[in-house]
């Protein structure tokens, strides 16, 4: 979120309120899960880190939210670096993988049960994402983000199948269907 806000400020200096609106618009149906306070908290952090500065707006001094934020040089550099950077997969696969290994080694939990619990959670999220995908008109950009989320969850589910096969001790691809 820090990077997204910095990138929006690269276009022009803005009020926190406007930034919130723009973020929500970019996120489409997912924007609803963002709370307004997050933008201000993030801006305060960015300011502390020397990436943005603010000044008071002169247009309408009567309103409380009159800080206009702008990027510093360091902020500009960070935006450029962020845009150039390749997104790495999130490390939660690594963590879950290590969790299964640890559960098995310590015998504190059954890895297959951990896989089952994880699957339930993924399916719950996928059901929500899928429902939202279908509620969007075809070809909308908001729908595109949801579709990406659904495809990732689907990939995670397929990986869990592989986890289950290995941790349940035997390959069960007998093909008797």
């Amino acid at each position: 979120m820090q990077d997204a806000i910095l990138a929006m400020l690269a276009k022009e200096p803005s009020h926190g309120y406007d930034l919130g609106l723009r973020l929500r618009r970019a996120l489409g149906p997912l924007g609803g899960s963002m709370n307004a306070g997050q933008v201000y908290v993030t801006l305060a952090r960015l300011e502390k880190a020397g990436l943005v500065v603010h000044e008071r707006s002169e247009e309408s001094p009567a309103r409380p939210d009159r800080k206009v934020y702008a990027l510093t040089d360091a902020g500009h550099e960070r935006v450029a670096a962020w845009l150039a950077e390749v997104n790495r997969p999130k490390p939660d696969l690594v963590e879950f993988h290590l969790k299964l290994a640890a559960a098995s080694a310590s015998r504190l939990a059954d890895p297959v049960e951990l896989v089952d619990a994880q699957r339930r959670e993924l399916l719950r999220r996928l059901a929500e994402a899928q429902r939202a995908v279908l509620a969007e008109p075809e070809g909308s950009t908001g729908g595109l983000l949801l579709e990406g989320i659904a495809l990732r969850l689907q990939a995670d589910l397929r990986w869990l199948e592989a986890c289950e096969r290995v941790w349940s001790g035997a390959g069960k691809e007998s093909g008797n269907e």
Partner: peptide
């Protein structure tokens, strides 16, 4: 429920 768990908006 709306995608509360779907998308972590943290940093």
């Amino acid at each position: 429920g709306q995608f509360d768990g779907l998308f972590a908006m943290g940093d």
